[in-house]
Amino acid sequence: MSLSNDFAPTGTLRASINLGNPLLARRDTDSGEVCGVSVDLAGALARELDVPLELVVFDKAMQSVEAVTTGAADIGFFAIDPKRGEGIAFTPPYVLIEGAYLVRMDAPLHDNTEVDQPGHRVVVGQGSAYDLYLSRHLQQAEIVRAENSQRVVDDFLAGGQEVAAGVRQQLQADADRVGGVRLLPGRFMVIEQAMGLARSRPAHAATALTDFVERCKASGLVAQALTRHGIQGASVAPALTAS
């Protein structure tokens, strides 16, 4: 690729990494280093551009979005959402992830369709893909926002709300940790995880980033990264269909 100046005007590719979704990025408990599928993809892009890589790490998706939109970072890894798309040009998705609901063991809720009722309060991570999606789709239930996605279940238990929402795997891990809760069957949304850059960057850079993602899916790089990091419950997104 001969797009180094478009992608990395500072001479270093600054990749915004969101730790709010542990399926894609996390901090190693022993070394403290940030690792994951999104980090692997950022490294692969930096190698293609032949520039150094700098990870700009955040705890919340909304912070990661802001960094790319304002130019504090060059690229990022996001759940595709129309609101975010106002400032970010997304690639097609590289990974698909399920969003799920969690309730207390004795809750009368047994189906996702029962959540959107008067008096129900749904806890989500502030600015997360679930926050944005449910803000548009819930008509009767109230949304309660936790500081970040990692705090959703603990806040849900402490606050006495009726439902928690988030990444299925994160909720299941929390359920195993705290006990006394269960996931509702199925999913309420499929999250399309994509790469993106600011819409203020040249259009040909966005096209090149789309090409990069498609090649990473086709070559097996994304699948290998999921396996390497032991990620279950996420799948490689289908190849882009030519229009």
Score class of each variant (00 low, 15 high):
Ala173Glu: 15
Val236Arg: 03
Ala208Ile: 01
Gln172Tyr: 02
Ala237Gly: 03
Arg14Leu: 01
Ser16Thr: 00
Gly125Lys: 08
Val222Gln: 03
Val95Asn: 03
Leu134Trp: 04
Met62Phe: 14
Asp116Lys: 09
Asp154His: 06
Gly76Met: 08
Ala46Gly: 10
Cys35Val: 14
Gly160Asp: 04
Leu109Tyr: 15
Ala205Thr: 05
Asp50Gln: 15
Arg182Glu: 06
Glu86Cys: 11
Gly36Thr: 04
Val122Trp: 05
Ile75Gly: 03
Pro52Glu: 13
Phe77Asn: 10
Gln170Ser: 13
Arg215Val: 06
Gly179Met: 11
Asp81Met: 09
Gly196Lys: 07
Pro9Cys: 05
Met1Arg: 04
Ser64Asn: 14
Leu41Phe: 08
Gly180Val: 03
Gly179Asn: 10
Val39Gly: 07
Arg215Met: 12
Ile88Phe: 12
Met62Ser: 15
Arg14Cys: 00
Arg228Asn: 11
Ala15Cys: 08
Ile231Met: 08
Val68Ala: 07
Gly71Gln: 00
Ala194Pro: 00
Val95Gly: 04
Asp116Trp: 12
Ile231Ala: 02
Ala61Gln: 14
Ala61Trp: 06
Gln117Ala: 15
Met105Phe: 11
Leu134Glu: 02
Ala198Gly: 12
Ala146Leu: 01
Gln172Val: 10
Ala218Val: 03
Ser200Lys: 10
Ala234Gln: 05
Thr10Asp: 04
Asp50Ala: 15
Ala173Leu: 12
Arg182His: 07
Ala175Trp: 01
Met105Gly: 02
Gln140Tyr: 14
Arg215Gly: 11
Leu184Tyr: 06
Ser64Arg: 02
Ala61Glu: 15
Tyr130Leu: 02
Asp81Thr: 06
Tyr101Ile: 11
Val144Phe: 09
Ala25Ser: 13
Ala8Ser: 04
Pro185Ser: 07
Leu102Glu: 08
Thr69Ala: 11
Arg215Asn: 11
Arg182Cys: 05
Ala100Ser: 15
Arg201Tyr: 01
Val65Lys: 10
Ala194Ile: 05
Ala107Tyr: 09
Asp6Cys: 04
Leu240Lys: 10
Ser219Gly: 10
Glu142Thr: 14
Pro22His: 04
Phe78Tyr: 15
Thr207Tyr: 04
Val68Arg: 01
Arg228Ile: 01
Ala218Asp: 09
Ala164Thr: 01
Leu23Arg: 05
Asp174Leu: 05
Val122His: 05
Gly233Glu: 07
His229Tyr: 13
Ser31Gln: 10
Phe188Val: 01
Leu138Glu: 06
Ser149Met: 10
Thr113Ala: 15
Gly32Pro: 07
Asp211Pro: 00
Ala46Val: 09
Gly76Leu: 08
Arg168Leu: 10
Pro93Gln: 07
Phe7Asp: 00
Ser128Leu: 08
Thr113Gln: 14
Ala141Cys: 06
Val103Ala: 08
Gln169Ser: 13
Ala203Ile: 13
Asn18Lys: 01
Gly11Gln: 09
Ser16Cys: 04
Ala44Lys: 12
Ser200Gln: 13
Ala206Phe: 02
Tyr101Cys: 13
Gln224Val: 00
Pro52Asp: 11
Ser200Met: 10
Gly159Glu: 11
Val213Trp: 02
Gly220Phe: 06
Asn112Gln: 14
Glu54Tyr: 08
Leu102Ile: 11
Leu184Thr: 05
Val95Arg: 08
Leu226Met: 07
Gly233Leu: 12
Ser149Asp: 14
Gln139Met: 14
Leu13Glu: 01
Val95Ser: 13
Ala8Gly: 00
